[in-house]
Amino acid sequence: MFKSRKSSSKSATPPGPPSPAGPAPVAAARAPKTEEISYDNDEDGAKPSEILIEAARRNNVDLLQEVLGIGADGTASSKATDLINTSVDALGNTALHVAALNGSYECLDVMLDVEGVEVDPLNRMQGNTPLHCAVIYSEEEPEHAISIVDMLIDAGSDPRIRNKQKDKPIDLVPGTNPELRKALQGAEMATLMGPVGAAEEEGQDVEDSGSESD
């Protein structure tokens, strides 16, 4: 499923790519165009896909924005979507999987705002989605993981997808995290009901709460 989340406003203007090395400019420097980013290997021989994965692992937003060609206006390069969707590590994890497994909230937020990003890719080893990975991360940081799960669900992740072991994300929730289980149960219910049913339920909740307060 491709993401359908609307782009969120950022608290700070994302930095643009660094100016390439070369002779001193003869006039005032101009902001680099988004399309001018190089997708060839860098000076150290690292591929853009490797840089992307490493940025997601370390939650390095500056490096992530540079490799995706995100300019001062927050718009990514036309190649950014394909780079995010096709880049994988040695275990077959995409940058979204890596970010979710490592709790890289800020980098995940940036990638999910790129139009056309696949939010439910399956990794090669377990067939997990990034949502599965966020639940796995909850064993390390329970509260932080809930924020990541909420972000993925808001971006359109499907909580009903099963991995190779036939487990949905909710099946991986530790017994010590009932709040995360509740969030995934609500997401499954909203997915089954669809936007119309969810809106009706929300309206009913508001009406019921008003009746109880009388």
Rank of each mutant, 00 (worst) to 15 (best):
G69F: 01
D89T: 08
A55W: 01
D40S: 13
V117N: 02
T86C: 01
V88F: 06
G71I: 06
K33N: 07
L96I: 07
G127L: 12
N102C: 06
G71E: 10
V98W: 06
G71W: 03
L68N: 05
S78E: 15
V61F: 03
C133P: 02
V119L: 10
V110N: 03
P121Y: 00
E66W: 01
A56C: 15
T129Q: 10
V110H: 05
D120H: 08
E50S: 13
D62G: 00
I51E: 03
N102L: 07
V61L: 05
A56R: 09
N85Y: 01
N123I: 12
Y39I: 09
P130A: 02
T129W: 09
L122V: 11
T86N: 12
L63H: 12
T34S: 15
A76Q: 02
A80E: 04
N93W: 05
S38T: 07
E66M: 02
A95Q: 08
L96D: 07
H132S: 13
I84W: 00
H97E: 10
G103V: 09
P130Y: 02
L122P: 07
R124H: 12
D113T: 10
L131R: 14
Y105C: 07
S78A: 15
N41T: 06
D42K: 00
E54R: 11
G74L: 11
N59Y: 08
V114R: 00
H97R: 15
C107G: 08
A46S: 07
L96N: 08
N59E: 11
E43A: 09
C107K: 09
V135D: 14
E106I: 05
S78Q: 13
A55S: 15
L131T: 13
D62P: 00
